[in-house]
């Protein structure tokens, strides 16, 4: 079962070949330019000096690590930084998430769903990579909101 991203040209050829498309073209669809850009030039990367909230999680299966620092004032996320290491999916997903929540109210950030994250990524995420894609959202949910038992990715 693949999770299809919301963007229209997201890689629909999730497994195997379709038609005569050479593999490298599909790879470029999968690792789309902006995913690689977020991976190589992560936005809001680093640490905050005095974060209101800070949390880190890892995915022991592949060694991905993501941590998020938040500076919250009057219910608004004034600033955000993330740190970590891992695959392109996990790191680009974290970078995209920080862009989404920066300047948002906590209430709005609270409503972010895994579908939102997939939509931001805009590519088909295979079952094996769902945990990579959702690691940063897990950090946000578990750390900032204390939802220790959040298991959004398992529902996939």
């Amino acid at each position: 079962m693949a999770v299809q991203g919301g963007r229209p040209s997201g890689g629909s050829a999730e497994h195997g070949r379709t038609g005569g498309t050479p593999p490298s073209e599909q790879d470029e669809q999968f690792y789309r330019e902006y995913i690689l850009d977020h991976y190589k030039n992560p936005r809001n990367f680093g640490r905050l000096e005095a974060p209101t909230l800070s949390h880190e999680e890892d995915n022991p299966l592949c060694g991905d690590v993501v941590g998020i620092d938040l500076k919250v004032s009057d219910g608004q996320i004034e600033d955000v930084r993330f740190h970590g290491r891992g695959c392109a999916i996990s790191q680009a997903s974290a970078s995209l998430l920080t862009e989404r929540i920066k300047g948002q109210s906590l209430d709005d950030a609270r409503k972010i769903s895994k579908e939102d994250v997939f939509e931001d990524l805009g590519i088909a995420i295979s079952p094996a990579r769902v945990k990579c894609a959702l690691l940063s959202l897990k950090v946000l949910k578990v750390g900032a909101w204390g939802l220790g038992d959040w298991s959004g990715e398992e529902e996939e």
């Binding site: 999968f30 022991p60 592949c62 695959c87 999916i89 295979s126 990579c132």
Partner: peptide, 25 residues
Amino acid sequence: IHAHDLATILDRHQVAIRAGHHCAQ
């Protein structure tokens, strides 16, 4: 290139390799 990204791209070449800690952390 993280091993998982490499494995995903190789999968598109129909190549199956293992990526991860190989149960040897």
